[in-house]
Design a protein around this nucleic acid. Structure first.
Lengths: 381, 381
DNA sequence: CCACTTAAGCAACGCTGTTGCCAAAGTGCA
DNA sequence: TGCACTTTGGCAACAGCGTTGCTTAAGTGG
């Protein structure tokens, strides 16, 4: 790591604390305590962020016997990102600000089984519609360059020159890129889908590169469960470890360990549904026997939600013990159809084994998580 | 992160590459390529490391048309660490050099069920015997301070002053500390055992602090499986992800994800043996049903090794799919009694599910891994 | 009203990795 | 044997990072 990288690292640290503080804001001294930097260093860093339009002063705290602390806040409108959720039968596109708040959404029904070009066209059309409707500048502006610098120091290819000392208090906001979430398997490093269940024609399509070309934006691709887990991780008040279990068409999982999304080297982590919980159980499509997904969905199919919840809870318990995680978050259409029953059933299994992990149900939207694929690096995630 | 921390970080990066290169050594230019630093920066860093006695020049490579590259090597004898393996019926104490190579060992039979003081006394006696037998300086020397600086920048408490420009080419080697591995559960942050199966009197004993007092050395405590996994991780040619599965008195696991040991917030990660693989199976002592450990050990008890291997392989497959890890490493008394059968059985299960993870058996000693608890921070691990 | 406390900026500084230049130490062709 | 060329690695000057010492700003409380 060199000096520019150090600068980016610390800027990301500060930006992340500003983001987490949200509407409440945070003072320079508290930033200093939390980052371990000196107050003077924080002053310099926040001065840069303010000059770049990413942060601003917003009121003061009550005095504790001396000069009151000045509160700093993130400027959510300084930058935006697009989130795309490419589901089996539906396409959702959202625009999200720097704070992760959705500011616009479009939704179309779309068959993932349609031709690759049809889907790519649809994404292009929807994103363009979102852009023009919300008038977020397409061209790279001051804040974009600032955020990019904050995110990665090795970005040497950018020929962008940030203007000195923005005279206007608010530089034009800009679009940082588009994050795309879809059912796995896929490789997030190359941005290429693998053999998507039921849609083999997607295998090997250079989806990310193609979208970069069509949208003229940086694009990141990841599994729907990973995107959702990432979004949830950024909403946690403090970095922790949790698993997002998604029960929909299949049973998948996104893992966040110590605040960081764990993808594995081949984006293969999170194959939660095909763990064996019944040795020599019924044969599963994956080639295994007694897979959690098969047993759980079979219970759902025959209307036995308590049993489905118990099976899901058993899988969750395996995971909690193996990884020592703090909480389990449930989501997906099937869970959301009976959230109380699934939460209760899962909780009961964990409690019965003496495990302290919390259980919650979230209706968190995948598309917002997809946008976080773009925003997360800004905050060092 | 500040400048001293940056310096430590880069020094650790370079030291790790020197360590990995081993006897072959590595040139300055290759270090520059691998770290992303400029050659000049690497020259400065390695000059410091050489002055501190941690690295030295050792020959040159063949020329490729110009000045031949000078080879740099780690000086293994620059520092040492003690590794303590506190097992249920035996105490093993080793001395390990900076390269992780064992240079001395002592072994005594010792009942973990004996009084806490008896065990502490035994550790003290054995470590002292090891020290005097190998004449490794007890007092902190130049290299110690250097290694400590390389390891952690926040170490402000040290009142040690490193001498300027050591005139002698080889500063006195020093003992960095002692790593202790024992059966879990325990908390590695506080260095306190939890409710060790069969030995409840260890619960809450401030083991690490007590040993710091008795040995006069920094001490780290961790689970035996974690220590072993850490040791194996440091032997990998490239940082990767793997699980160390230990089948002995019980069935435990150490997880290394992207080259880093995953302990979980409460050192609870690795509860591999108590995952349910047989819904509504036989009751286990942990309160669950159909636990992997119970089923696997039952098969071992009735002499059915192939079945034990198949069950172990099933658990391994769950883990490989969940975490997308590269390889599975087997160890422990039971496995080592029939290494080929366990390896083959595990491999067959993985292959049958189309998983590419490699399977190997290791006789790697826990005590060496324990010593790595002390050495690892020097290399940024 | 004034002493005191707390927050935050200015200027000088030490130390980081970087850049530009040059010496060292080989190869290979004439 | 000599000389041009290639490659390595150190020296010196430098830009930029966070830190230190001090000053100014802006409150509280007797």
């Amino acid at each position: 790591m060199n000096l520019p990288a150090l600068r980016s690292h610390n800027a990301a640290l500060v930006l992340d604390l500003l983001r987490t503080a949200g509407e409440d804001g945070i003072s320079r001294l508290e930033l200093a305590e939390r980052t371990g930097l000196t107050p003077q260093a924080v002053s310099k860093i926040t001065a840069r962020l303010r000059a770049e339009g990413l942060a601003r002063e917003a009121g003061r705290r009550a005095s504790t016997g001396g000069k009151p602390r000045t509160v700093l806040r993130l400027v959510p409108s300084a930058a935006y990102a697009v989130g795309v959720h490419l589901d089996r039968d539906e396409l959702t596109v959202v625009l999200v600000d720097l704070a992760g708040v959705r500011v616009a959404r479009r939704r179309t029904s779309l068959d993932l089984g349609a031709g690759v070009d049809v889907v790519l066209d649809a994404i292009g059309t929807e994103v363009e519609a979102l852009r023009s409707a919300t008038a977020v500048a397409t061209e790279t502006a001051t804040a974009t360059a600032a955020v990019k610098r904050a995110a990665t120091a090795t970005e040497t290819e950018s020929g962008i020159e940030a203007g000195d000392e923005a005279p206007a208090p608010a530089p034009a906001p800009a679009l940082l890129g588009a994050g795309v979430a879809m059912p796995g398997p896929l490789d997030h490093l190359t941005g290429t889908p693998g053999r998507v269940t039921g849609h083999p024609h997607w295998e090997g399509v250079p989806l990310r590169d193609e979208l970069v070309r069509r949208l003229g934006l940086p694009v990141e691709l990841d599994k729907d469960t990973n995107a959702t887990a990432l979004g949830l991780a950024l909403h946690a008040p403090v970095p922790d470890s949790f698993a997002y279990l998604h029960l929909g068409t299949g049973l998948g999982c996104g893992l966040v360990l110590d605040g960081a999304l764990h993808r594995g080297a081949r984006t293969g982590a999170g194959e939660f549904g095909h763990q064996t919980v019944q040795l020599d159980g019924p044969l599963c499509g994956c080639g295994g026997r007694g897979c959690l997904e098969a047993l759980c969905l079979a219970a759902v199919a025959r209307g036995d939600i308590p049993e489905a919840a118990r099976i899901l809870g058993t899988g969750a318990a395996n995971l909690v013990r193996l990884l020592d995680i703090d909480r389990v978050v449930l989501g997906g259409r099937v869970v959301l159809a009976a959230p109380e029953e699934f939460a209760r059933g899962t909780r009961e299994v964990l409690a019965g084994l003496g495990l302290a992990a919390g259980v919650a149900v979230t209706p968190y939207a995948v598309a917002e998580g997809a946008a976080q694929l773009i925003l997360a690096p800004t905050f060092g995630k």
